[in-house]
Design a protein around this nucleic acid. Structure first.
Lengths: 341, 341
DNA sequence: TACTCCGGGTGTAACGTTGTACTTTGTGTC
DNA sequence: GACACAAAGTACAACGTTACACCCGGAGTA
């Protein structure tokens, strides 16, 4: 197990009979170096098994090829698929991804931010919570490039945003239900303090208004992305004197537990309740009935986020803030039906 | 946007009127320092917003509080839940997680290994593929602590392993079917080159033998974790002259697509086919019928892996190789039934 | 001839941190 | 009063890399 010290530029330089600077220029394809020596250096590198030490490089150059990724939790299929795509695209761009999760807990989010600042990551892709605006702003001011994905905090200037067109998606979903005669439509959404929550509620409202349907605040349930609350909140809504005939689940974290609850409560879909959920997880077509979903192009979302960050990292000058909204698609399946007589 | 240089120990030292060494000792709670000066230093740190520069620290101390995590893909709910738990436990231990995915592609796996070596991560948790044994061994010899999780490569010495008791789990699953009268039981598993694939096939065989049932090689389908192959391979098995009456899906990546295929092929579960799948994803109870599953304690798996790695990282001496197997549980649901006729 | 210019190379300092060796001061002991 | 001894602090080098200034020699130009 002869665990020898890892070879350094110096070792390579000596082995190739050249100065360290030349080696550096070879590995970074930087300054000019004679073809012959270049080959000699490359040979030495191969022979010694040299690998640049990124910490040293980062220290010297004050740059990094690592980005941070801050998500609520990666057990939620929405985020996990997003993470998968982001990691892939980042790898394509030569970037490593330091993953942290917040479990929707502001304190953990703060710890994540702290960690990433210490690591001096070059940039961060994050789906931020609502309470650490100051910390995010500070991170940005420290010079860390930041891209918000899916959600964002709008009080912070100069941060790119890539998200879904939530307002539109929610509007379509509600409209689809209204067209089937539904008047009492419940919406389970994330907290209205999050951008996604707000936008989804807004789209829902707009659709109601367009059809002259009065809003009933009791039908809008904001869940701060916690599984436990799902059942109690839901049973409250379903027990209303005038219960809803349709339900939109705009909080991807609780979709499965909502369906579970409906089943155990003996509510049959779509006879008793039409259901639409956000995010087309792999199982949504497997329930009975298959669920109508709002399908997001997660790959595009990830690609955009990585690209935005990457260009920022590689361009010295200060770019204008960009915001990109990706369309989503309503996939109709049997979980919605015309309202009963 | 006054993006000033980040403060360093030197700045803090000057501000507090001490030498840099003292500051270092304060932040690392290392040598002894007078209570009074300690407070003064802490005050300066707070005021200046000092944050240690990890690259510099890593360079100097030749250690890291970052570990690598190498998984096939994090879109597979099995791996994504595992990743979620690992990231959480690692954070509790003060470790950052650099996530890479291989998409089951040996070349990508090699790139991941390369990246992690460059980053000089202190340790790596990995679910390895089969083809890069040499690279993994080399990584270990370089001094990177390594823990294999879920799968492993047994040709490599000195690497800890945390996994499920796959042989036993598979044996239980097959036995449960045999007890219900099934004789022709198909097994969709990962490649028998992976440890999990081998073990699951072995457990299956043992159960068959114990009941004096002849093995039929045509009933064992090895899928190298690729979605596309699932349908064709499966339809082959189902079209056999003597088709199976039961199916065990031991490849978590294809569970959903297998179920989809069964449905589109008009095969009703459990009347035509009893089904058991590995891994209790959040949706397995939501299909109709709900699926019998082999449930793994992913949290324990993650916890063990992180703990093993963590103790290795913090103990100077060379520890003996450890291997831990966690039990899994067969959760019976209506997707299995006594064989017909 | 004297000059600039350029390719190809060397040497050195610096990035921010911490370990080691050293100095200073105070305190208790014989 | 001399001694050892610990506590508290300083100074400096080193980790591996790269940016920068510099040097050398040969080719092109006035």
């Amino acid at each position: 197990m002869a665990r020898g010290r890892e070879p350094t530029v110096k070792d390579v330089a000596e082995h190739a009979g050249v100065s360290p600077g030349v080696v550096s220029r070879v590995v970074n394809a930087n300054g000019s170096v004679a073809e012959l020596t270049r080959e000699r250096v490359l040979a030495s590198i191969a022979e010694l098994g040299y690998r640049p030490h990124s910490a040293a490089r980062e220290l010297r150059t004050r740059t990094t090829n690592t980005i941070g990724l801050v998500l609520a939790d990666v057990a939620n299929p929405f985020f996990s698929q997003l993470a998968d795509h982001i990691v892939r695209h980042a790898a394509d761009a030569g970037l490593g991804v330091l993953l942290t999760t917040t479990q929707e807990d502001p304190a953990m989010e703060l710890k994540s931010i702290e960690l990433l600042l210490q690591k001096r990551v070059g940039g961060v892709i994050a789906a931020p919570g609502t309470e650490n605006a100051a910390a995010w702003r500070h991170m940005r001011e420290t010079g860390v490039e930041l891209t918000f994905v899916d959600r964002f905090i709008d009080r912070i200037p100069g941060i790119d945003v890539v998200g879904m067109n939530n307002e539109h998606a929610s509007h379509s979903a509600t409209t689809a239900l209204i067209e089937r005669g539904h008047r009492r439509i419940a919406l389970v959404s994330g907290s209205s303090e999050t951008s996604t929550g707000r936008e989804r509620i807004a789209g829902h409202r707009r659709a109601l208004q367009e059809h002259g349907i009065a809003e009933d605040p009791a039908l809008v349930v904001e869940l701060a992305f916690r599984h436990v609350e799902a059942e109690t909140a839901l049973s409250g809504v379903l027990a209303l004197p005038q219960p809803p005939t349709a339900l939109i689940v705009g909080n991807t974290a609780v979709s499965a537990s909502v369906i579970t609850h409906l089943r155990s409560a003996g509510i049959s879909v779509p006879q008793d309740l039409s259901v639409i959920v956000f995010h087309d997880a792999e199982w949504t077509a497997l329930t009975s009935p298959p669920l109508t979903v709002v399908r997001h192009q997660l790959d595009d979302l990830a690609k955009c986020a990585v690209e935005m960050l990457h260009t920022r990292l590689n361009s010295a000058e200060r770019l204008r803030r960009r915001e990109k909204r990706l369309p989503s698609e309503l996939v109709i399946r049997p979980s919605i039906a015309p309202v009963r007589g």
